[in-house]
Design a protein around this nucleic acid. Sequence first.
DNA 1: CTGAAAGCGCTTACAG
DNA 2: CTGAAAGCGCTTACAG
Lengths: 338, 338
Amino acid sequence: MNISDVARKAGVSTATVSRVINNSNLVKPKTREKVMKVVEESGFVPSAIARGLSIQTTSNIGVIFPDIENPFFSGAFYGITKIAEQNQYHVLFFNSDENMGKEQEFLKMVESQHLAGIIITPINHFSAETRELLNELEKKGVPVVLLDRDLRGGKFSSVMAENEKGAYQAVSQLILEGHERIAIIEGSPSIRSVYERSKGYRRAMDDHEIPIRGEYMVRGNQKSDLAYRMTSRLMNLPEPPTAIFTCNNMMTLGCLRYLTEQGLMIGQDISLIGFDDIEALRVIDFKLSVVERSEAEMGRIAVRMLLDRLKAPEAERETVVMPVKLTLRGSEKLRRKN
Amino acid sequence: MNISDVARKAGVSTATVSRVINNSNLVKPKTREKVMKVVEESGFVPSAIARGLSIQTTSNIGVIFPDIENPFFSGAFYGITKIAEQNQYHVLFFNSDENMGKEQEFLKMVESQHLAGIIITPINHFSAETRELLNELEKKGVPVVLLDRDLRGGKFSSVMAENEKGAYQAVSQLILEGHERIAIIEGSPSIRSVYERSKGYRRAMDDHEIPIRGEYMVRGNQKSDLAYRMTSRLMNLPEPPTAIFTCNNMMTLGCLRYLTEQGLMIGQDISLIGFDDIEALRVIDFKLSVVERSEAEMGRIAVRMLLDRLKAPEAERETVVMPVKLTLRGSEKLRRKN
DNA sequence: CTGAAAGCGCTTACAG
DNA sequence: CTGAAAGCGCTTACAG
């Protein structure tokens, strides 16, 4: 069943059927009715792919995230699918696995798939290749929205968060609790958002005139396992830290795993604040203090921005910065002083 | 840059370019070289959409899950994207939100998008509409794989789990610990996999000759919030249960939230075993006993099945049943007897 | 308001 | 091994 079949049955041309389907107002009401009747009876669904070839674009948006198992991203993804669905858009998802090669491979495919737009969390802030691929897409009329991570030298729409501020508040709170030996598990320096959290840490230390010790700054890679090993390194220092700030949720988990294995009680033997909340721990009232933000909302905003640019291609590119909130639940404290 | 441009530059016909791109062996090596050179230099990427229209199918597979924020599904989704990517397939994702209308809306779209195949976790075991839509797709050569949930009367490939067995083992263990007042937070009765877990509960109770009390069987909806309220109902019974078995991870969280709010210690004041593990709790060594399975593996298997059927359309439809494992961590015990 | 026809960019049966 | 040409199922500028 295709558009010609419908046209024949309705006694009109395919052009008219097409106009009816696309709600063109260049159709006489009677004709529209006649065509709609055939469409309903036959259960005709137009081929999105033929339409795509003809108008050179589709209603599919591409989403590229580095790690869909990270609850931040699955939450953002949920927000994306919701708004996309409400607007009759579909979502093509790609997991880049924090791997530059995969990211670029996917971007090259975008054009051949004629995607309407792209929401991406780029792997590397400094990747000129990724930036150029995205620039080319923009030039070809495919709007791009960055989510959670910026890209150096690019001018794209984006949805970011108050990363530095959140980290600043968290670390300041630790200082307020009397900590001086505060460690940070940083993320990759080539991820802007995570790097900004390191900056917040340094600024908080500086503002309170606490000297920063190199051995207290260890580098993770956004994943749990390395954070586990880095926590081990920290805790085996001659003078281990009394508090740790972790730069994302997965690293918080890795850190917690090590501390737990060592029998250290959070909020008693050691203090900890993490970036991004962890639902299961909140539920059981585990006293983990965190810097929170709404990941689903970030996803929703990203899609809305994309759709706005699709409607008004000349519209300004904008950046939305999601507010963060420091939620204190007790893990920032220390009962038994070391 | 399209196939005609390449053909012109290489001094051959579009047919030949097409053959080169698709690795047909009906091309003289010299010709192939000549064409490949132009392809590389021009950075030509064939239009997937034009190809799709021509051959009436694409390299996109559709995935429909009810709740991508549930770690079981994001884990399975991760497995899916991995294998899909390895085989040059792309994934169109749709979140049905446990909503039948959305599920069917999406299925109707599958055909117009010419998806190569479908992986679906159906909302309702008894939905004849969904079953028929899937049957039609199969008839049209679009293979279907069910993941985690079966569909009555359908004969589709599927990846399931040992649901009844897992529940049976969990509840038997509770009985072994001396419990008799064992409650269950069931899921929707129209979801086969979750329902099978209820059956495992009943069989375990029967086998051990423990009478089943109606007030100990409460119904959830796979979500955390309702499980929270149901736990409240259970614990406010004149004779509350001493142990609870929850039929999925989200309901385990809701249950934990209530118990925690009431100041009850898991494994001391009340026992609990849940279906599906919860990473964050494992990490902090929270003593939650669970029935585990590998969700990523289920996703990987589902894609492999799909690809096999794509290669050999006449291949038998098969069902893989993932083994489960009861992991005891202490929450099945009771320190202070009620 | 409506239709004939060209065009979107591929693939492939057919002829050579 | 290669090419001309029809076809996939839509949309839309153009003519009426």
